[in-house]
Design a protein around this nucleic acid. Structure first.
Length: 471
RNA sequence: GGCGGAGUAGCCAAGUGGUAAGGCAGGGCUCUGCAAAAGCCCCAUUCGUCGGUUCGAUUCCGACCUCCGCCUCCA
């Protein structure tokens, strides 16, 4: 069985083979957040996707170095810093902290390196210098430095690796009036933006005068600094394919001397976008959620993560409240089964049961087919439940099954539900209900059960006595 | 206009040239004082529409319809 991933460069599913000759180290770069506001659920779909890629690589035995940038200087950021009369550092620091709190709530593993654009000015400037030296970048009359796609192509480089481009047929100037720029060609993009009054004190010195870096260049500078000039995986949302990632390739392959056959990134992956309640997300129409909106509605990070994990990353996914309720119900079924296994398994340590792991691996090996993987998990749940009901599971078997689930959950990252301990008051009610049941005072015992329900607890009568569950 | 993706039960969602995984919701039964949980059973003769290829297509080909994404700083 081979581990295969879709590669945007070839538009096909390919066997994943790392650059490392030993086949062990994997360098992975993910385009991180622009910290100008709370991130929304669409952003988090992408981050959960990248988290699963990383976790599955680790599950497969690769030693992953995961780098995710923080874009902490950009047009919107600067505008808001001015509006709020604050400093760049203070403003971006707040949203970066909020982002990481959300990241934690969704149980995403932290990247090993979280580089910030503003902390990589020397690397950025040096990369632009290389491009200028090679004649691929030029300083325009407006003082900004641009990347010349014509010159780049003149060097024998290929622009348009991720998307099929036809500049003649493009609707130029749809979003940005082309006459605002003094670029040689509309497709050229900014590497260094000259300081303007609206920038306030957000600027850095450079050989081309004071200014700030363009957007794309930071990712080229930071990824190659932390992962080397060639690395295995680069991930992001589908909207980043063009121009962001295409420009990253151009900057990197234009500036750095790549030996024949070697390139900037071996494998590009892009996550598809999200619809909310069947509609495109729109801030102006209020069709979007931040994570805190959903937490405020009483959903947990793991429920949201679970829902985001139900669809394949390249398929458009419709995020709905109904879906969240469904995720909650299926998690409850899973938790119930795992909880029973845990009770039976005790502290026994045994190797994991292979059946589930084989089915799971088979599904995930095919470009992270999470739906098929869930299918395997729930078939396993049914089987475990059947054996538990028939009393056919020995302690070591339960421990082996539990261990298999734990391995699967290293990838899904759902963990256990938060069960806080019952208070003395609750325990007293449970005892009172037991006494009433013993005396066959069922009216009283049902009343106590309702009381417990109001306190947020469900009591289940099992062969081993009452069992409490959080509502 | 250019390029790309998708249409599978009430909802979400896999999949295959040989007759449709799984989850949620729903119905019946068993267990239970009653519940809950769990088990058992039922729940798409059908995969956007129309043609074509084939012994056979949801799966391949063509046309059409619908939805979605990118087209210069949006995950």
């Amino acid at each position: 069985m081979a581990f295969q991933l879709f590669n945007t460069l070839t538009r096909s599913v390919e066997k994943f083979v790392p650059l490392d000759p030993l086949g062990r180290q994997v360098g992975m770069y993910c385009c991180g957040p622009t910290v100008h506001d709370f991130a929304h659920i669409g952003n988090f779909r992408t981050f959960v996707f990248t988290d699963v890629v990383r976790r599955y690589l680790e599950f497969r035995g690769f030693a992953v170095k995961h780098v995710m940038n923080i874009t902490d200087v950009e047009d919107k950021i600067i505008k808001r810093v001015q509006q709020r009369h604050t400093t760049l550092r203070e403003f971006t620091g707040k949203y970066e902290a909020e982002f990481l709190a959300d990241f934690d709530a969704l149980q995403c593993r932290h990247p090993h390196v979280l580089p910030r654009a503003t902390e990589h000015l020397p690397e950025i400037v040096s990369l632009i210098e290389k491009l200028v030296a090679r004649g691929i970048a030029y300083q325009a009359a407006d003082g900004s430095v641009y990347f010349s796609i014509d010159k780049y192509r003149g060097c024998g480089c290929h622009y348009g690796q991720l998307v099929n481009l036809n500049f003649d047929a493009m609707r130029v100037g749809e979003r940005v009036a082309s006459d605002e720029y003094e670029k040689e060609a509309v497709a050229d993009f900014a590497l260094w933006k000259k300081r303007v009054p609206e920038d306030g004190d957000v600027f850095w010195p450079s050989p081309w005068g004071e200014g700030r870096p363009g957007w794309h260049i930071e990712c080229s500078a930071m990824s190659t600094k932390h992962l080397g000039q060639s690395f295995d995986l680069h991930l992001g949302g589908e909207d980043l394919m063009f121009p962001h990632h295409e420009d990253e390739i151009a900057q990197s392959e234009g500036a750095l001397a790549y030996p024949p056959g070697q390139r900037f990134v071996k494998h590009w992956m892009h996550g598809s976008h999200l619809l909310v309640e069947g509609k495109k997300m729109s801030k102006s129409l209020g069709i979007y959620f931040t994570l805190r909106d959903l937490l405020a509605k009483g959903f947990t990070g793991r429920e949201i993560r679970c829902l985001l994990l139900t669809a394949h990353y390249r398929a458009q996914f419709n995020f709905t409240m109904d879906g969240l309720a469904g995720a909650r119900a299926s998690l409850a079924r899973l938790d119930e089964c795992v909880g029973k296994l845990r009770e039976l398994a005790g502290a026994a340590t045994v190797p994991p049961e292979q059946g589930l792991l084989m089915q799971f691996t088979k599904a995930m090996d095919e470009d992270l087919n999470v739906s098929a993987a869930w299918g395997a998990v729930f078939e396993w749940v049914s089987e475990v439940n059947r054996k538990l009901a028939a009393n056919e599971l020995t302690r070591p078997q339960a421990a082996a099954a539990l261990e298999a689930w734990n391995r699967v959950d290293e990838v899904f990252g759902l963990g256990s539900s938060q069960q806080d301990a019952a208070s003395a008051e609750v325990m007293a009610l449970v005892d009172e209900r037991q006494a009433a049941r013993k005396a066959k005072d069922f009216k009283r015992s049902d009343a106590v059960r309702d009381q417990l329900k109001e306190l947020g607890w469900v009591v289940e009568d099992t062969a081993k006595g009452p069992r409490l569950k959080r509502l």
